[in-house]
């Protein structure tokens, strides 16, 4: 499992991301739908930032902007001090849907990034390493339709990790996993992040997951999303879910999301 990080100690530091006064909106049927409102967020290299907010508030939209797939209506987003002009393989996204290509095997799906960048020859060994890292040994030749939902999600994670990203953008990557796999994948991801140096941006619906994994928790309001709170999670790893410090933060996050009465 640890092969990937040990074989090639990451030399490149994580990416710094600076989001400043970003507004974004969509045109829906002639109407303007504001989605992001004055979002400002400075992310240091190597941070693990969790984004939490009500469904449909604009979290995935923000991730698309950071990935460079869309450009914000106003405001600026910089990666290492340079404006983001478009997608780049140093910023890899794991989308909410695994979106594997049905005509490619797991192996060839994971190879996609290396193939697109012309690195297939020199980096071929990484493919197998990434596949075993997510526990899909023996399924390299399987087609996506032969995988379970959780396995497909793990294949999508391998497809991202094989590129040795400096910023890993995760949009509810564990949302489709059963709770057992989910809990072990949370530890795996944290371990992977600690061994490599990449910066992580994680969207999740699960408060406990955010507190278990991240160094910082950003809570958004409902649409249009604005930042309601930015909380540092000052706890060493490995963490324990029953840690009273974390349960305290959990209570605080629930309050911010308007769920205090369920405590």
């Amino acid at each position: 499992m640890v092969a990937l990080a040990q074989a090639e100690p990451a030399v490149l530091p994580g990416m710094a991301v600076s989001i400043a006064h970003v507004d974004h909106s969509f045109d829906l049927d002639g109407q303007v739908l504001p989605v992001l409102s004055d979002v400002t967020l400075d992310i240091q290299p190597g941070e693990f930032v969790a984004l939490l907010g009500p469904s449909g508030c604009g979290k995935s939209t923000l991730l698309r902007l950071v990935a460079g797939l869309d450009t914000p209506k106003s405001g600026s987003i910089e990666a290492d001090g340079l404006p983001i002009a478009g997608p780049d393989p140093s910023r890899v996204v794991v989308f909410q849907d695994p979106t594997l290509y049905p005509w490619r095997t797991v192996h060839d799906n994971v190879a996609l990034g290396l193939q697109a960048q012309g690195l297939l020859k020199s980096h071929r060994h990484r493919i197998g390493e990434a596949i075993s890292l997510v526990g899909l040994d023996g399924f390299a030749k399987a087609f996506p339709q032969q995988l379970s939902g959780g396995m497909a999600q793990r294949a999508a994670l391998a497809r991202a990790l094989v590129n040795d990203p400096r910023l890993l953008i995760l949009d509810e990557p564990l949302g489709k996993l059963d709770s057992i796999t989910r809990i072990s994948m949370q530890s795996e991801l944290v371990a992977l992040w600690q061994r490599s140096n990449f910066t992580t941006l994680l969207v999740t619906h699960d408060i406990e997951e955010a507190l278990f994994m991240a160094t910082r928790l950003v809570v958004f309001s409902g649409r249009p999303a604005r930042i309601k709170a930015d909380i540092a999670i000052e706890r060493p790893y490995p963490r324990h879910r029953s840690d009273p410090y974390l349960t305290g933060l959990r209570h605080k996050a629930m309050e911010l999301l308007g769920l205090a009465e369920t405590w």
């Binding site: 990935a67 460079g68 797939l69 478009g86 997608p87 780049d88 393989p89 910023r91 890899v92 996204v93 989308f95 849907d97 979106t99 290509y101 996609l112 990034g113 193939q115 697109a116 960048q117 497809r159 590129n163």
Partner: peptide, 17 residues
């Protein structure tokens, strides 16, 4: 689906790719 293109674009795929 446009998500197929998004995947390839974020992984460094050219127009030709």
């Amino acid at each position: 689906p446009s998500s197929y293109y998004d995947i390839a674009r974020t992984l460094g795929g050219s127009q030709r790719f």
